[in-house]
């Protein structure tokens, strides 16, 4: 589904990704762990198509299609979703209206009619219940004045609405208390199917107790230095990263 081949990327003159290989198949959950500055967020941004990163070598493929030169919005239309570590505040645009715009733009790109208002409302209601989101919350300006937990829950709500093929969750657990973490993880688990895939980027093992990965990869200095199963995460929790760095 998602195939990353020998990916090198840099921002300005600084090379951050130095040859990443990763294959994610439908129905799988992958976790990417690693210390600060190892390139985790960069990898997420590059997959989603952020323009200020330059891919110097290698490729990102989605269902066999090379995503080079594919704009971020087109990647979204094709089924890539990034849950942001720091979601941006957009005052004056409500969560509901934002979602309507996003859904209808995706439909437009696929040659579909706009979603009828009634159907949209039903979908919004259904998905907001999944994430235990209050109705009042949906009419607030997007992310403005949201707590850390609300922002992250809102990200997963958007994921639920957009139903991506590959979801990349960038530090979705940071800033969450244990209850919010459980709600978010529960949402992700319910959205999972044999046809989609999830890549969880995290510092800590904690989230992986709830979203159980099939594979765990350790990213260090722009490269995956070790891959394993979920037991690897437990080992990292216990020993830290240093033993792997040499």
């Amino acid at each position: 589904m998602l195939k990353i081949n020998n990916l090198h990327a840099r921002v300005e003159d600084k090379e951050i990704l130095k040859g990443i290989n990763l294959e994610v198949k439908p129905g799988e959950v992958h976790a990417i762990m690693g210390p600060n500055g190892s390139g985790k967020s960069t990898l997420a941004s590059v997959i989603a198509g952020k323009e200020n990163f330059e891919v110097t070598e290698g490729s990102v493929e989605l269902e066999g299609e090379d995503l080079e030169d594919v704009a971020p919005e087109e990647r979204a239309h094709k089924g890539v979703f990034l849950s942001f570590q720091y979601p941006v505040e957009i005052p004056g645009v409500s969560v509901t209206n934002f979602m309507k715009t996003a859904i209808n733009e995706s439909r437009k790109a696929r040659g579909l009619e706009e979603m009828p208002a009634k159907e949209m409302l039903k979908l919004i209601r259904e998905k907001s219940e999944l994430l235990e989101i209050d109705r009042k919350f949906l009419s607030r300006s997007l992310n403005e004045g949201f707590s850390g937990g609300e922002k992250k829950r809102n990200e997963i709500f958007q994921m639920a609405m957009l139903e991506p093929k590959v979801a990349i969750l960038d530090e979705t657990d940071s800033g969450l208390d244990i209850d919010a973490l459980r709600i978010v993880a529960n949402g992700v688990n319910k959205l999972k199917s044999k046809d989609n895939a999830v890549v969880v980027i995290t510092h800590y093992q904690r989230l992986l107790d709830y979203i159980v990965p099939d594979y765990v990869h350790v990213l260090h200095n722009g490269k995956i230095i070790k891959s394993g199963t979920k037991e690897l995460a437990l080992e990292l929790e216990e020993k830290g990263y240093d033993w792997l760095k040499n």
Binding site: A71, P72, A76, I90, A102, Q158, L162
Partner: peptide
């Protein structure tokens, strides 16, 4: 902010 909106499928 622009990237955030684009990543949700909203054209530039």
């Amino acid at each position: 902010a622009l990237f955030y909106l684009q990543s949700r499928g909203i054209p530039k």
